[in-house]
């Protein structure tokens, strides 16, 4: 159910933007758009189906703690 809703939402975004981009023949935009959308989709999908994704904030935290340790 949740996955279905997710697909619905991203399909809505795609249906909203893609025809406009294609009409303007902005192929570069299309590529960037698609990449971003796919990134967003995979991230959301992983969260919905429960795949663990590394958390960037933890990474930042680690870096900061390491950096603080240096001084």
């Amino acid at each position: 159910m949740n996955t279905l809703l997710l697909i619905l939402a991203f399909a809505a975004i795609a249906a909203y933007e893609i025809p406009e981009i294609i009409r303007r023949r902005q192929w570069k935009e299309l590529v960037v758009f698609a990449v971003l959308l796919i990134v967003g989709f995979t991230m959301s999908l992983f969260q919905t189906i429960g795949v663990k994704v590394p958390n960037p904030v933890k990474g930042i935290e680690l870096i900061i703690k390491k950096a603080a340790g240096l001084f």
Binding site: I13, E17, I21, E29, F33, L36, L37, V39, G40
Partner: peptide, 8 residues
Amino acid sequence: ALIYPLAA
């Protein structure tokens, strides 16, 4: 075009 993907 990038707004909605970024929001997502």
